[in-house]
Design a protein around this nucleic acid. Sequence first.
DNA 1: CTGAAAGCGCTTACAG
DNA 2: CTGAAAGCGCTTACAG
Lengths: 338, 338
Amino acid sequence: MADTKIKNATISDVAKLAGVSMKTVSRVFNNEKYVSKDKKDKILKVAAKLNYRPSVQARGLAGSKSFMVAMFVDKLEGDYLTKVLRGILDRSEPAGCHLVVEVLKAQGDKEKLKQVLNSVNFDGVVLTSPICDDTVVLDALKESNVPTVRIGPGFDYEGTFKVAIDEFKAASQITEYMISQGHSRIGFIKGDPKHACSLERERGYLRALQLAGLPIENNLIAPGLFSYESGRKAAELLLDAENRPTAIFASNDDMATAVLAVARERGIAVPEDLSIVGFDDADHAAIVSPSLTTVRQPVVQMASAAFDLLHEGQEHGSEFIPHPFELCIRDSVASPNE
Amino acid sequence: MADTKIKNATISDVAKLAGVSMKTVSRVFNNEKYVSKDKKDKILKVAAKLNYRPSVQARGLAGSKSFMVAMFVDKLEGDYLTKVLRGILDRSEPAGCHLVVEVLKAQGDKEKLKQVLNSVNFDGVVLTSPICDDTVVLDALKESNVPTVRIGPGFDYEGTFKVAIDEFKAASQITEYMISQGHSRIGFIKGDPKHACSLERERGYLRALQLAGLPIENNLIAPGLFSYESGRKAAELLLDAENRPTAIFASNDDMATAVLAVARERGIAVPEDLSIVGFDDADHAAIVSPSLTTVRQPVVQMASAAFDLLHEGQEHGSEFIPHPFELCIRDSVASPNE
DNA sequence: CTGAAAGCGCTTACAG
DNA sequence: CTGAAAGCGCTTACAG
């Protein structure tokens, strides 16, 4: 019942006990050069004994680094964001940096934005779609001078870092894969237009058809919003049409799963009578039946790279290298039977 | 290209412009009583003009509150944790509190634990399974005097808050549901023994059988680890046995989905030839085919409640009220045909 | 390689 | 209802 809160050791406790100045202790904990080996050893020993750790708050107040990075999210949903968090944490933890999650409703949550940006001095901010393309947010970040990295942005924005895969190429390749399996009537379900990747994926699909000399039929293209429900609607649209497609490319795995469900309800066998591909390699892509052929983005690595860009304070404008994607060939595609 | 970082307004800027002392401004921003209305109005007006927000770091250093809460996680995976984060953020944001995510490898990541607890003074910490039952963590938290709330803990720990559903009752009810549908040979796939809920769910299953006067057959009970893969193994064990069960209760939805897949591979129709239930109502439970009958925990609400307990500084030991669970009756259960 | 002083932006503990 | 002073635990900017 010791309700006496044991106070943590401070830098001056360590300095006193080690017989040096605070500044020297500070040097050690900031990995500055020019500390004699014996003093450094002594300081480290004393610090360990006292169980000393620099206070994040004091450092943040006194210095220019806060040891906190933020991730701004629109809404917390899906395993994509979990992977982003994991990727950041993989690097931020060893760097002694804390990850703060801030919710920012899309489109002009200006009040919240000011609140967050003025009350905490983040060492950097990671943005994902769709707010990585929200200029209100980007402008505010720029004005606050906070290093910013955007994962999968739709356009370039001066002074920010960018991490992405080549969505266009990925979409194009998975479409080509279906074409190579013999499909020529390939339906497409668009993603949420709020996300920049949606357009890229559509462009990739169209390009692949075009390159293969296949006609582009508008009634083979259905709108979608990335959600399972929107995928169902699109699937119904596509599958109830006369002369239905022999394959469907859904812009993400949730919608591809919806196509799977609608096909099953209609007694259409997958992949025998209908091939399906998705995008993302979401956690459930491999565990639905049949498992989904899809495109995998290395989300965790991308997020780790995002943190590294922030932390290493790279130069902007260094050539952008897209991260590699990967076609996950599984069981939802077969050659059309006729 | 204004690289001149505009400094944020401080409390003394506001005080000066409003013609009051810093302390009075402080009072307003901390909602203390005893500030005359006209001064308060004036201060608020000036603060708005200056776009002033109290610095989290300065407040944390000077005062006893840090305006930061932490969530300690073992590993960041699955939609359960996403929901917990969302639940906390739903409440922490309006409260002006920031959410920090810290990864703590299970079992004695003492170094990291000290690091985190000594460098930041959290207003509270939220723990989920399995680390909510890690006594090393609990002891350290207790010693640091940090308000702690545990979601779904396996035992009580003095001085901590608890948020949970009645796992035992939930498991028992869903088992009873299958019995009511006519099943008498019901298989069970255990959860990861590291998680306290695993045992509770098993107890609930056993109790329901017992109450119904059904025999408990050990070869109807298979080990599992909550993962899809472990679910596959368990399903194979259960389904390859002679006299296989007519129904299987998997301790979570990932494993239930695995049972679905294995059944499909074996040509066993679900739910006609085999009924399946899961637990959790994970995101994919409703979108697999057939959709899974399962138990839903109000995870988001539970996490919100967790934050509230921290923030409102409730008394410990006030009667614990389990959160309500809900049976989600979907398409994976039917009466056995014989 | 080392340190003394000032200051970061707040709250605390008092005093009135 | 209000405020002056001290202090939270660090880093900064200098000086040596």
